[in-house]
Structures are given as C-alpha cells and as structure tokens.
Amino acid sequence: MDEQFNKDPLSHQHFLTFLLRDECFGISISSVKEIIEYDNVTPIPLMPDFVKGVLNLRGDVVPVIDLSIRFNKSATEISKRTCIVILEILFEEQIVTIGAVVDSVSEVIEINMDNIEPAPTFGARIRAQFILGVANVGEQFVILLRGERVLSLDEMAAIIEKVAD
C-alpha cells in the first residue's frame, strides 16, 4: 500500500487534522501557513459571533474566524489547547491570509485520493458545499473541508453586511 503511494504522488494528499467539538476535520496542508496558539485576538465591534476579531501576525492584521460557529454549532471554548490555524485562501486572484479557531490540532496525515468518499448529502450537519469528502483513517472518520468555501471572504462579508443592516 505504502509503495503504491510513493510511486504516484498525485494519488495522495497531505491533510492537517484538527478537532472541533470532538469531531475530526481535515484541511489540505497546501493552504495552511502556520499554526499558532490562541492569544491576543482583538475583537472587532458589531461583528457577528463567528468573527472572533483580528490578530497581529508579524505586522499583518489577520481576521480570525470561529469555525465552529461558521458550522452553526456552539462557540469554541477557549482552552490551553485552542489553536489558530493560519490559512492562505485565494480570493479574487489574490492570496488572503485568514485565521481559523479550532479546539486542538492533531496531526498531518496522508490520504489516498481513492479512499476519499463523497460527502454525505445530509447527516454531517454541515453545509455539503463546505465538504470535499470523508476519509476513513484508522477507526475514525475525517471530514475533509474545502478551505476556499468554508472561509469564502465574499460570502462571509455578505453575512456581516446583513447583520450590520
């Protein structure tokens, strides 16, 4: 099995897995810039709950999003293990840096693309368009996310605009 991976690099991808409310999610590491601990997030007034605020990342001001609320679940409780995954998302042909709050980061895993099953049309209680697919790793299901959809700046900005009005 392992040999097969090494022969064809296109057949597998690396994913960063993390926990969100005891569920395991994965996101392609090609969009992950770094992982930092949750600290020094400045709240922005009048923002909907899923916008945690902004963060100073070595001189760049990066918005921080609570993924759990974005998935219509309750807010992430900040603990020692809470992390911010800094992601680079393509938006209007520009790379935009954005932070996502997760309960804890687990590991980087290799997943054979053939082993990824399509997203269940219902049952995950997350909008289907956010999900790239589901993979069975060990004894656990990992929900693989589409970063550019989950953190679509355009869509989030539209939500914020509605709330502001």
């Binding site: 400045t42 963060l55 100073n56 001001v61 938006f91 900005a157 009005d165």
Partner: peptide, 27 residues
C-alpha cells in the same frame, strides 16, 4: 494605518487598523 480587510467592508465608524507598541491591534 492599515486598511480594513474585505471581510469588514460594511463596518461603519472604523477606518482601519494599526499595530500598537504592545503588539496588539488598535482600531
């Protein structure tokens, strides 16, 4: 002055961010 992120385009009354001496972000 650092311009606001696109995400906050509907925000009224805040013109931008700045990074404070403490490393925090000021509005």
């Amino acid at each position: 002055i650092k311009p606001l992120n696109t995400l906050f385009r509907s925000l009224r009354g805040i013109g931008g961010y700045t990074i404070l001496g403490s490393g925090n972000v000021g509005l």
